[in-house]
C-alpha cells in the first residue's frame, strides 16, 4: 500500500472484478464442455415420446447432465400441464 493509495477512494480493484467475472464464466462454459454430445438429440427424442401422451411445451422439459468424481447423473425434469388438460389429451 503506497501513500497515494491511502488517499485514493477505496473502490473494488479491477483485477478482483476480472477474477469474479472469469470464475462465473469459466464454470458455466465447463459445464457445457463436459456434456456428452448426444444430449441435444436425446432431449429432442424424449420430448417427442412424451408429447405422444401428454401435450407439453418445449420449455417444459429439461435434461441436465452432471458429473461428480465417480458418477455421472442424467436428470430429466418434465413439468406436466394442469391435470384436466392432460387428462383430456390422453382420452381423446
Amino acid at each position: 500500500m503506497s501513500l497515494l493509495d491511502y488517499f485514493r477512494a477505496s473502490k473494488p480493484k479491477s483485477a478482483s472484478i476480472a477474477k469474479e467475472r472469469l470464475q462465473i464464466l469459466v464454470a458455466h462454459e465447463r459445464s457445457f464442455r463436459n456434456q456428452p454430445s448426444y444430449l441435444p438429440q436425446l432431449q429432442k427424442e424424449l420430448l417427442a415420446v412424451i408429447r405422444k401422451y401428454v401435450s407439453v411445451d418445449q420449455d417444459a422439459i429439461s435434461v441436465n447432465f452432471e458429473q461428480d468424481e465417480n458418477q455421472e447423473t442424467l436428470e430429466l425434469n418434465i413439468v406436466l400441464p394442469d391435470y384436466q388438460q392432460s387428462d383430456k389429451s390422453l382420452h381423446n
Binding site: 493509495d5 480493484k13 479491477s14 483485477a15 478482483s16 476480472a18 477474477k19 472469469l22
Partner: peptide, 8 residues
C-alpha cells in the same frame, strides 16, 4: 498486480 489492476 500489486496495485490491483492485473490478475495475480
Amino acid at each position: 498486480v500489486k496495485s490491483g489492476e492485473m490478475l495475480a
